[in-house]
Design a protein around this nucleic acid. Structure first.
Length: 354
DNA sequence: AAAGCGTGGGG
DNA sequence: TCCCCAAGCTT
């Protein structure tokens, strides 16, 4: 495989392309491992434009790893609100505590140590080790899969363990010992803005002459990924108990979506329920709700990567003082603004409450 | 090892 | 509208 392109010339060509085409991003040209780590966690499965404002917000709210470690988890989640994959924020916070408590506030310098940290997997460990400490370990992310699979004609499934090993081995063959950071940044940047998923810019590509995909017109079928996410439909019926200017909210704790975020008491059903149908549901009996005190929202369709949530909110204005619920409490509107909430909940609040 | 975990943007 | 995706990690 490596015979198709000389490894030394590949990295030189790539780094040369990178120096001429790189974007000016705020987490480049910083040497603080904390900021590099922060940017890498934010950018997991996230576009640069979407992550950018969060990076600035986190640097401002938590200038050092100590500041982050000392914060309440809910404050961290609140800052992360809207970015999705909230386990990243919980692990970010856990990791900050580990760095402060076990590493006297200094990030470890090697891939092998970094990869043990919560929320830091093979990609992020390689990124920090190379960007912050100059270690020659190759990053392998979605951009790298795409660029290498096309140029070298690798048809392994990138979602399989075997495929990941193949790509990691190749990238580690190609990475030069003297400029590991530039190589890693360059390969990702190349995949991101040159060798794009659709309509790659092959006519002006420095690897055109040796690119397997270009020669065989296989850009659209590389990289190979087998997995298909099956979409699950779920029907959410939220009970929004209102007492003055306060709503009953609770933290999601189940092993499910939005763990750690706040929402309302939820009745999930197998089909969408009208107000009439909801009121006769068994789960509602303990609440002793009067029909005329309930107003229902329109149906929200909230799209997650793997679930479609068909959701209706039922505002209950005359809630009993003692709700038969073991978690949660009434929060004033002011408090609610500060709670970490899924986008769906924020949308409802904006549409019907605030 | 495969499934689960968000959100918003683009073709 | 629908599908694919975007600098992955955890269990």
């Amino acid at each position: 495989m490596q015979n198709m392109v000389n490894t030394g010339s590949f990295s030189k060509k790539l780094i040369n392309w990178y120096e001429q085409n790189k974007r000016d991003l705020p987490w480049r040209n910083v040497s603080d491992p904390y900021k590099i780590w922060l940017s890498e966690i934010i950018l997991q499965q996230t576009r640069v434009n979407q992550g950018m404002p969060y990076y600035h917000k986190f640097v401002e709210l938590f200038p050092t790893v100590e500041d982050l470690a000392q914060a309440d988890e809910s404050k961290v989640l609140r800052a992360w609100q809207g970015l999705g994959y909230y386990s990243r924020a919980r692990n970010l916070h856990r990791c900050a505590k580990v760095i402060v408590q076990n590493y006297v506030g200094m990030f470890p310098k090697t891939y092998d140590e970094l990869v043990k940290l919560p929320g830091v997997g093979p990609y992020t460990a390689a990124a920090i080790a190379s960007f912050a400490f100059g270690e020659a370990t190759a990053v392998v992310d979605g951009n790298v899969f795409r660029a290498l699979s096309r140029i070298f004609g690798i048809e392994d499934d990138i979602n399989s363990g075997k495929g990941q090993k193949t790509f990691r081995a190749l990238a580690n063959e190609l990475i030069p010992a003297n400029k590991p950071a530039e190589f890693n940044q360059g390969l990702m940047e190349f995949g991101s803005i040159q060798c794009t998923p659709t309509n790659p810019h092959c006519e002006e590509c420095v690897f055109q002459s040796e690119c397997f995909a270009y020669k065989n017109d296989l850009q659209s079928s590389l990289p190979v990924k087998v997995k298909k996410v099956k979409i699950k439909k779920r029907y959410f019926n939220y009970l929004v108990f209102k007492k003055g200017n306060a709503l009953f909210m609770q933290e999601r704790q189940a092993k499910d979506i939005w763990k750690g975020m706040y929402d309302f008491p939820l009745i999930e059903s197998q089909k969408p329920l009208s107000k009439k149908e909801l009121l006769i549901a068994d789960e509602l009996k303990p609440f002793n709700i009067y029909s005329e005190a309930v107003s229902d929202s329109h149906e929200y369709k909230h799209i997650l990567s793997h679930q479609h949530l068909y959701t209706r909110f039922f505002l209950v204005e005359r809630a009993a003082d003692n709700l038969p619920l073991d978690k949660g409490r009434f929060f004033s509107y002011e408090e609610i603004l500060d709670l970490p909430k899924p986008v769906l909940i924020s949308s409802y609040l904006k549409d019907y409450i605030f």
